[in-house]
Amino acid sequence: MDFGSINPALLIASIMISATPILLAAIGEMVVEKAGVLNLGVEGMMITGAVVGFAVAVTLTSPGFGFVAAAFAGAALSLVFALLTQFLLSNQVATGLGLTLAGLGLSSLIGKPYEGMKSPPMPKLDIPVLSDLPIVGRMLFSHDAMVYVSLLLVVAVWAFLKYTRAGLILRAVGESHDSAHALGYKVIPIRIAAILFGGACAGMGGAYLSLVRVPQWTEGMTAGAGWIALAIVVFASWRAGRVAVGAYLFGGVTVLQLNLQAAGANVPVSLLSASPYIITILVLVIISARGVHGAPASLGRSFHATH
């Protein structure tokens, strides 16, 4: 067997492309969960973002507007979730599943006229000097803008949660909504803001699939990416930096598996496809066993102010 044909620079560049949609969705979902809300509707919001982003990008021949529209579409769908869970106190697990169902249905209705169309190409950034570096230039500095946006978003979320007062309040709301409420913080508006942010990120992640990674619109094209994003948040034990690591790992396993096959290795496809999930469970066990329960304490619980 000869793996010489695998070019590490290209491999990493591919992994970055394949990781970006799940990274965007996961970083958004992490903020939602940090606020104590479990939204299982990521898949639904992603695919809605994918179709709306694609439709707008094609209509206006501008991928940039596509991403903006996708963010709004994802946020709009998440607003349904926010209203149900925050005002009407519905169960978050069931509402999230309903959101996925509705999102899948809605997206294929919207998408019918756009099947078989091609998206306008997303320009690759040509960063002076950096892009021209040997190997590293091709590997890290010749991507489209969204790859860097997603990474900047990770940094921004990390800084926001760690250093800002607003971030502290958001975490407090996620840890104990009753105490946060007693301290005078508005639990529900804060959670709604987090949910909308999560929706917008998932929407952009979906649009990255339909505008860059595939790029075209087809029904059901997210094919479980939203669920992977949920796994990544867990894998990352709710830390921004690890979300990036997790997304690249998940994306990496997929791409590496394909590359090994392309290089002629006889790989057990099922085992490799299942491995990221098994690793996630192991990580979960390790962080739990250390006694550091990474999960926000109020995760998934409804809040109702009694006074």
């Binding site: 479990l38 669920w227 949920l230 796994a231 867990v234 996630t280 066990v285 739990s288 999960a295």
Partner: peptide, 11 residues
């Protein structure tokens, strides 16, 4: 270990 069953069962 106290791991969250929502996530493990989903994985």
């Amino acid at each position: 270990f106290g791991t969250n069953e929502i996530l493990v069962s989903l994985m």
